[in-house]
Design a protein around this nucleic acid. Structure first.
Lengths: 159, 159
DNA sequence: CTAAAACCTCAAGTAAACTTCAAGTCAAGG
DNA sequence: CCTTGACTTGAAGTTTACTTGAGGTTTTAG
């Protein structure tokens, strides 16, 4: 496999991808890929002429970043979810399994937060009730991450 | 009820809230409330001395904004979800019901997107499979809103 | 009546997540 | 070999969602 030229044809599992190919395949702009690399979220090898070449498994990483983006998960959280997932070599099955556990926890939290909200919208606003004493929508003590203070408990008054 | 001074005591359902009270109760900073008002997401009455006074039902609106924020929903989408929900008067039961239908649709979409991802993380990465031909994680044709291009379909090659 | 706390506006600053631009270099086909 | 398209860097610009600060006014408690 030697140097970094693309001597393998495109079908080969050893073929490296250019930044343009990565961009086309993931739907993430090349400029964004460079940006992610600066943040250390992804990594690339370089040709003799200093152009980036990505191993194929990097597609998976970029796709997970794209997913996080769609869900509004900040890149710092993505970074955290990627700790223990090696950047320098192809991740093993175990590596991916460990990483996917983290992702699943994050997703589960988020899903549950949404499910709770759906319930509350049905019970609390859908009914048109005007008293919101016990409305969990206004009092989510368990926040979705540590984004900020979050709404507080309403004491004892009607709205 | 006449003018905008707070002649009703704090327990009264007619009492108006100052921006500080709104902030304490929703957990949203006063500066953010002013910002939301500039965007037209919320509205306030003014005292003779030009200070903001919020009717109590505005708490609900702000809480929904806070919820959206926790879920990473952009304010433009929130604005859209609030169309048809009157700012100038207290929303009726029907108003809230209509608005909550919009919210529920948004939440349901998001929840389903997450559920799909959870499935895919289990089946696609959890298993450690190296072929991602049919991996929906890399090919989410239905994006979570219109945030951008989103990943494209991978044609026919293994990773 | 007075002083402190809370509020006002407007302008500018910040952070995240990128994009765009300029000026140049590399790679691939003919 | 040469041209064209893809790539490189660094710096600056953009958008979203606010926060901070200055300088002044209003409200409220004593």
């Amino acid at each position: 496999m030697g140097d970094l030229q693309q001597q393998d044809d495109a079908q080969s599992p050893y073929a490296l991808l250019t930044i343009g190919e990565m961009s086309r395949r993931t739907g993430i702009a090349a400029s964004a890929l460079r940006f992610y690399e600066r943040l250390g979220l992804i990594a690339s090898a370089r040709t003799a002429g200093n152009q980036r070449r990505y191993p194929r498994h990097m597609l998976r990483r970029v796709s997970l970043i794209a997913v996080a983006k769609r869900l509004g998960i900040p890149l710092t959280d993505v970074q955290e979810a990627f700790t223990e997932l090696p950047l320098d070599r192809m991740p093993s099955q175990e590596d991916w399994q460990r990483a996917s556990q983290r992702w699943k926890r994050t997703l589960e939290e988020r899903r549950r937060a949404i499910e709770r909200l759906e319930q509350e919208l049905t019970g609390c606003i859908g009914c048109g009730c005007l008293s919101m004493d016990a409305c969990a929508l206004l009092n989510p003590e368990d926040s979705l991450g540590s984004t900020g203070a979050g709404p507080r408990r309403l004491e004892d008054d009607a709205i």
